[in-house]
Simulated scan of single mutants.
Amino acid sequence: MQQSNQPRWILLLTVVVASGFITLMIFKVSNAFSELSSTQKLEDKTKVTILTSDEIVDQSWGSLAYMGQLKIEEQFPVEVTLYSEMKTEALLVETLEQALEAGAEVVIGHGREFSEVFTTFAPLYSDVNFVTIHGEAVHENQSVYSFNQGEIEKKAGIAAALISETKKIGLIDAVDAREDQPQFEEALYHVNPDLSLFYKVVDSWDDHSKALEYMEELVNEGVDVVYSRGNGFNRAVIEYGKKHQIYIIGYLEDQSYMASNWVLTSVMNDVSQMYIAIMKDYFSEEGIQHGVKLLTEEDGVYQLAPFGPMFTKEDLQYINE
């Protein structure tokens, strides 16, 4: 009896061992394919380099580049490297060379200051897309993404003209954009041709001390409304305005939370949305096109914040006509 059962047990044991071996092999092969798939996915990601001359801190121009990075990493198959504080030409050139040698396929300069160096590198790397936020595009693989917020700046200008009692209005700019963006000034004179505009350029997005120096000069001139078209220095300007009872027009975000009774409105920009527009074009059938592309309110890059409590219903109706 025992002898007749023995071959069956041997057969059963053989089947169990063989099944275990086959299962183990399937598991190993599955893991190998999974690792291969992950590697392939990583290799398929487009390498994007972002350059900014600013720091990556709250309320900074550079923080908008970081927000752009996060958004495109979430929405597109990209591998992004962000380099900040590109403050010298030597550091910029060295970093750009390293990025290109590492296989960067799209290089985005977070500001017009990168146009010149991109113009130098673009003909040397014809298969790379060089893109700047604002600026100039010379070569076929160079592009500029920009926007014209003129329509909402007109409304901000009308608001400033209506609220000013001294008829003296200041504009503190991060960069000299008076000729490129004249709509705010034009709106002032449309409301009252006798108004005076005092224009100051900080030459920085974040120089608090220089911006406050200009604020003091403007107050001494009798200015009672200031459009602060900066970024990092805006908080200092708004705090100064609140202290000296000067109305402020904010920039980039709704800045009424800093001084709700003294901020007329804010010209809001969501620069990070420009990165989505860039990569959306890159992955489109046509790809990124040479030249300048003007984004609109539909792209989510700008809008006007709600007006403050200092305006009457009649004022608001006039502004929005």
Rank of each mutant, 00 (worst) to 15 (best):
W205P: 03
A236L: 01
G232C: 07
L171G: 08
E116S: 11
K87A: 11
Q98F: 00
I172Q: 02
F233M: 08
F114V: 01
G241V: 06
D254W: 11
I50R: 06
Y83R: 08
Y240T: 03
Y318V: 08
T39N: 15
M67T: 11
V226R: 04
G62Y: 10
L36S: 15
V48W: 01
G170Y: 04
S38W: 02
N31F: 00
F21P: 10
I163D: 03
L70M: 15
S60R: 08
L212K: 01
E116M: 03
F33M: 15
V201Q: 05
L294H: 06
Y251I: 01
Y251T: 11
V107C: 09
V48C: 04
D54C: 05
E35S: 15
I278G: 05
S60L: 06
E185M: 06
S34R: 15
E314H: 10
E165H: 10
L124Q: 15
Q6R: 13
A177H: 09
E85N: 14
L124P: 09
S284H: 01
F147Q: 04
S284C: 06
I169P: 06
E314N: 12
V15G: 05
T49L: 14
F27M: 14
I163F: 07
N261A: 09
S143Q: 08
N269A: 10
W262V: 00
V57G: 09
E186T: 13
A99W: 01
I288C: 06
N269E: 10
I133N: 05
D254G: 09
Q181A: 11
A65T: 07
Y227N: 05
H290I: 06
D44T: 12
N31C: 05
W262Q: 14
H139W: 08
Y227H: 12
I172M: 05
D194H: 12
T88L: 05
Q59T: 12
E35W: 13
V93G: 00
Y199K: 09
E153P: 08
G157F: 02
F233C: 07
H134L: 11
L91I: 06
N231D: 11
G150W: 00
G62L: 07
V175I: 09
A160Y: 03
L100C: 01
T46P: 11
G135H: 08
Y275S: 03
I133R: 05
L24A: 12
F33K: 15
G150R: 02
G287H: 01
Q245N: 14
M1H: 12
F76I: 08
E297F: 00
A177C: 06
S84H: 04
W205I: 04
L295V: 07
E239Y: 01
S60F: 01
K154T: 11
D127Y: 14
Y275D: 04
